[in-house]
């Protein structure tokens, strides 16, 4: 109760930080907010150009390679950007935290949220690209009512980012190395998540390797997202269960670690 009351008091700080991050992201750039659309579009083109011939041929599995790519990339990009920002948030606001009392969890949470808003805006690109293929080409992609369920993977993804962000923010206060290690981890994640390939096309015979790939919660989230948006089929309930459980565990761990350590932050930043 006490916590809710406190959060209610500082809700304006939360929204101010979200607002600030979004406003400042593209300030001083000529195209401004337009980059939110342009950046995913351009990287999609690059990836289509590079991998289109290798993985894009299998029409039956990817249906529409550009859309397949864009789905994976948007989710991956949001996850990495949000968690990275959350990770740095405490140290970056050190000057404030040292001087005034503020509930510290606001910082990682607001940073994830501001990225979430940009992510939601960038989904428009996906809508435009899909509309293009549906209207102007005879794509194998289908639009079904399942697209209305897209909010399920998105909410799970958001929760996952909050949890992971809290853990990373806490770790980063103690060891700045975490930043560099996480950078490498994110690169690994890019290849370990089926963004530009399909799991079947890899022909993995080694069971352990396959399980390792499937243990990645982003794999579940990306699959669910594509099921809704691209394939137009119901989601695999196992994916929902696994990723939701993973996200909840992360939030619990993140919340506990953060709560236990937050009073010490000031001594380290």
């Amino acid at each position: 109760m006490e916590y809710l009351k406190n959060f209610y008091k500082y809700r304006f700080l939360f929204s101010e930080i979200v607002r600030k991050n979004i406003k400042l992201q593209y300030r001083n750039s000529v195209l401004g907010m337009f980059w939110t659309f342009l950046q995913p579009l351009l990287t999609m083109l690059v990836l289509v150009f590079i991998f289109g011939n290798i993985f894009g041929r299998n029409e039956k599995e990817v249906l529409n390679y550009p859309v397949y790519l864009l789905c994976g990339r948007l989710i991956y990009e949001f996850y990495t950007q949000a968690t990275k920002r959350a990770m740095r948030s405490i140290r970056n606001s050190g000057s404030v935290i040292k001087k005034v009392y503020v509930p510290k969890y606001i910082y990682p949470m607001a940073n994830v949220t501001s990225n979430f808003v940009t992510f939601l805006i960038s989904l428009l690109v996906l809508a435009v690209v899909m509309a293009y293929f549906l209207i102007f080409t005879d794509t194998a992609m289908k639009l079904t009512p399942y697209i209305l369920l897209t909010f399920v993977p998105i909410i799970i993804l958001f929760a996952l980012c909050i949890g992971v962000g809290m853990i990373l923010a806490t770790m980063e206060v103690y060891f700045k190395d975490v930043e560099y290690m996480y950078e490498v981890f994110c690169m690994l994640l890019f290849y370990a998540t089926p963004i530009f390939y399909t799991v079947n096309s890899l022909n993995i015979s080694n069971k352990i390797f396959q399980y390792a790939l499937m243990a990645n919660p982003l794999y579940s989230i990306v699959s669910m997202f594509r099921d809704c948006v691209l394939f137009g089929v119901p989601m695999n309930p196992n994916h929902i269960l696994y990723s939701a459980a993973f996200a909840i565990v992360m939030i619990i761990i993140g919340g506990l670690v953060f709560y236990k350590k937050q009073d010490e932050f000031i001594l380290h930043i």
Binding site: K9, L13, E16, L24, V96
Partner: peptide
Amino acid sequence: AGFDMNYSGKENVYLYGATMGYSR
């Protein structure tokens, strides 16, 4: 201490105010 350098003076007034727990 609560200012963001890239933010304008006006925006910082609101940010600083929010940091101190005041509403918009």
